[in-house]
Write a protein that binds this DNA or RNA. Structure first.
Lengths: 207, 207
DNA sequence: ACCTGAACACCGTTCAAGT
DNA sequence: ACCTGAACACCGTTCAAGT
């Protein structure tokens, strides 16, 4: 009893307030959007005073960076899982990666926003974020290399082509979240069109 | 003298507080980023009390929507101007449109953010925003049609292909603003790679 | 070492009251 | 019709003080 982590009584030495605040922040965000994620509300939810978070995070941006980091971990996990389910066809793996990325954004709009939005601005302050973000890029570049080895994708730096593919996926997710696709088009149609264009390009193949 | 619009004395019946608040909001944003754009600060800058804006805007989101609208007007103007400078080559016009779009985002990060970010969320509330946003899409679709007529771009719905092109441009702008491109790559390289991939696609042309 | 309590300078929003 | 003044319920952040 005495070690119950969510007891009602005000308790000193929370033990794991750092993690508790991150979890509280994510729950607040999922329940009420980004606006609901305030430092004070996170403290309340964790059962501590408004000033307590400052023993664990320099400021609100630091907490948001920690939230973003967990978001990237989750995204990476979903992409890895999708990759494993995609079997041996690396072209199919490319599509599955894109679907996982866009699906993640659609399933967690506020989290996706925190991951890429300007709440965390000054990314130089949080180098660990750049590092884990680049991990998703590497995943894509590796898959792309496999396609190139089978002669399915044109030659060229897989890092550069992967970055281009990522850009398209990211634009897709961003426009969907901004509700900027025409009303007469479904999500699935939009995703299909963008994916096909990424693969085939716009130019008419000049025989 | 008596009609000086920025006189120091508190003045009733501002005359054009609606426009004044929008301008103040944009100036605040350009000077101090999105965080600096508060309703109270806009009111201060316009020389009125904190409650005055509520005679002209339902809430803060409405003011932001007005700011976003002016952003779309400016973007549309830059794209149109770029188009006129691009001469008769429609393929060049496509590139110029993309450059204008990405350039606009890089020149006005906070404005671009307000235009597409969730500050304005609930776009159903502001249908005039959807309308003007679609105007930029139409501009692109028309240019694309010209390319198709010359046999430069593959056949297909120009609206769909234009949407795909827009998605790539938007992803490009978003990742640049999120500082998510690898440090060892320059902006220009990144834009070039993404543009080339949009044009040529990823697939190896299967003879 | 870790947290509280109270405070400071802000917010967005509402509402009676002024002219 | 349009604005002010004062208020309410919040913020992020700081700092002395508690255990």
């Amino acid at each position: 009893m005495s070690s119950s982590p969510q007891g009602k009584g005000g308790r000193y030495h929370h033990g794991n307030l750092h993690e508790g605040l991150i979890r509280a922040a994510i729950e607040l965000m999922e329940a009420g959007g980004v606006d609901a994620l305030t430092l004070r509300a996170a403290a309340r939810r964790a059962g501590v005073s408004p000033a307590a978070p400052y023993r664990h995070f320099e400021d609100k941006a630091s907490l948001l960076a920690a939230v973003a980091y967990q978001g990237f971990e989750a995204l990476l996990a979903e992409m890895t899982a999708a990759l494993e389910r995609s079997g041996d066809d690396p072209l199919r793996a490319m599509k599955v990666l894109g679907a996982a990325y866009v699906g993640f954004a659609l399933k967690n709009p506020p989290l996706f926003r925190v991951m890429f939005g300007p709440e965390v601005a000054n990314r130089e302050r949080f180098p660990e974020l750049e590092e884990i973000a680049s991990a998703t890029m590497i995943l894509q570049a590796e898959t792309l290399t496999r396609c190139q080895e089978l002669g399915l994708i044109r030659p060229g730096s897989s890092l550069e082509l992967g970055l281009a593919a990522w850009t398209t996926m990211h634009g897709c997710a961003s426009l969907l979240l901004a509700q900027q696709i025409p009303a007469e088009m479904t999500e699935q149609e939009f995703i299909r069109i963008v994916g096909e264009t990424l693969m085939s390009g716009l130019l008419l193949p000049t025989v």
